[in-house]
């Protein structure tokens, strides 16, 4: 097919996302702060849709947070990545999917750097062999887990029991989408929709009945900044950047925020609490916060999962305003039941 004009430009930012057969690697931050999101993801793709997503107990961190905190050299990072690829090769897979955005950026950076500098790939292969006696094939396809849900968005919509619609008014819910910086800012062609107009979350929201809000600081970083959050003395950086985003989105009265990065929902959730404690300022209706979700949690709500099975009780900013708008029935007494 021949595309012209905007269609041609847009076509450069489309990804051919495989339907099935993935080697799945987990996210350090997702497992710590949103564990039920990974559980929900695998439940949707494996149990509800019957797809093949393989996990091995032997995979580890990719080292990405240490790398972007400048604690490990590039060659160390790439050799850990190469080891993950060796596990994929041993398991007989060619499609590689990462739960983490930092990892997705790390894998993309590694493969692209090796493409530009083949001698570095050779060196890393030697280091991996020296350290572990392992060998590897590179993935034929690299995805972020949000790419997979984007690909499946219409199947999820077909199976939906809830829509991103205000049940009382019938109006679409107003949604802020926040894309993790390392999804496509470094390598725009590797993300659905590129870096300026990423479509990976927008596509989900539109398919599930919501309406996306455009606001000035839509592409601004959540403020994680690696060492700027991890070191207590630096955290003002992280808080200030989140504050900037909330000040920018507030006039548009969002009902909810959806994110595709493991860290971003944590910071957008927790810093709302801190701003409220420090300044008494809130950004949602009725002096409440704006509920923040992972895309797996939103997919789960659309599919009718119980909110507390999705782990929404471990958010700091209350999610109930959104559940009420969607008309989701939930048991308040079960929220903190263990």
């Amino acid at each position: 097919m021949i595309f012209n004009g905007k269609q041609r430009i847009w076509s450069e930012y489309q990804k051919e996302i495989p339907d099935d057969h993935y080697f799945y690697v987990r996210s350090c931050i997702r497992q710590n702060f949103f564990p039920a999101s990974e559980k929900t993801f695998l439940d949707i793709v494996q149990n509800r849709l019957g797809l093949d997503f393989f996990e091995t107990e032997h995979h580890t961190t990719c080292g990405g947070i240490a790398y972007h905190s400048d604690s490990i050299p590039q060659e160390t990072l790439m050799t850990i990545v190469a080891r993950q690829f060796a596990l994929m090769t041993d398991a007989g897979y060619k499609n590689y999917v990462a739960s983490c955005i930092t990892s997705f950026g790390i894998y993309t950076e590694t493969l692209e750097t090796w493409r530009h500098y083949p001698e570095l790939e050779t060196k890393v292969r030697e280091s991996l062999w020296k350290a572990t006696k392992r060998e590897f094939n590179k993935p034929e396809y690299l995805a972020h887990a949000s790419d997979v849900i984007y690909k499946l968005r219409d199947r999820i919509a077909t199976a939906s029991v809830n829509r991103l619609v205000n049940k009382k008014t019938g109006e679409p819910l107003k949604v802020v989408e926040h894309i993790g910086c390392h999804y496509s800012k470094m390598f725009p062609s590797k993300g659905v929709g590129g870096a300026e107009y990423p479509y990976v979350l927008t596509g989900m929201i539109e398919a599930w009945g919501g309406e996306i809000i455009d606001y000035p600081e839509r592409r601004h970083c959540c403020g994680f900044g690696f060492r700027q959050y991890l070191v207590k003395a630096n955290r003002g950086y992280s808080l200030s950047n989140t504050h900037k985003k909330f000040e920018s989105m507030k006039p548009f009265k969002p009902d909810m925020i959806i994110t595709n990065c493991p860290g971003c929902p944590y910071f957008l959730d927790r810093w709302q609490y801190v701003i409220s404690e420090m300044e008494g300022k809130t950004y949602g209706e009725n002096s409440q916060g704006i509920p923040v979700f992972t895309y797996e949690e939103v997919a789960g709500l659309v599919l009718g999962y119980d909110p507390w099975d999705l782990g929404l009780q471990i958010h700091q900013t209350g999610v109930e305003p959104l559940l009420d708008k969607m008309g989701i029935i939930y048991n308040k007494a079960d929220k903190y039941k263990l």
């Binding site: 950026g105 910086c181 390392h182 800012k185 470094m186 870096a195 994680f224 900044g225 060492r227």
Partner: peptide, 12 residues
């Protein structure tokens, strides 16, 4: 040199 948050927005 320690102020950057490595978000890589500059690259885009």
């Amino acid at each position: 040199i320690w102020y950057c948050g490595e978000c890589m927005s500059c690259i885009t």
